[in-house]
Design a protein around this nucleic acid. Structure first.
Length: 109
DNA sequence: GCCTTGACCACGG
DNA sequence: CCCGTGGCCAAGG
């Protein structure tokens, strides 16, 4: 009987891995898909442990399309470069055409 | 075992 | 959109 909390983290990783290229989603969207809409914070925290995993954390941004977590990456603009590498326009830590690139698991899945 | 911090979000003003 | 407040859960001190 493993811990449910660990399941939550694992779910976050699973959903993040399902994010298609050139698309982005928000912490709240993932949390809501997992049934924990109010636990959006935990999604970001889970991402903190995504280091070393196959989780594209750079595709997960906040609700405003802002790269709030770019400071947690190795470099300063690594997250932005990764997104631009997938065809996502990012200016001043903000994703351009965010609503069009937004990928909602609860909606698309 | 309590207190603070944190890659957030919703609501009210 | 900005500001303040509440909530949620986990990790670190």
């Amino acid at each position: 009987m493993q811990q449910e909390t660990l399941n939550f983290f694992d779910k976050v990783y699973a959903v993040a891995k399902l994010i298609p290229h050139g698309r982005v989603t928000s912490y709240g969207a993932i949390a809501k898909y997992l049934g924990a809409a109010k636990s959006a914070r935990m999604v970001g925290y889970a991402m903190n442990g995504s280091s070393g995993k196959d989780v594209p954390a750079h595709r997960v941004v906040n609700r405003k399309g802002l790269l709030t977590g770019k400071h947690h990456f190795d470099g300063t603009n690594l997250m932005q470069q990764l997104l631009e590498s997938e065809g996502v326009e990012v200016v001043e830590n903000q994703i351009q055409n965010f609503e069009a690139l937004f990928w909602d698991p609860a909606m698309e899945l």
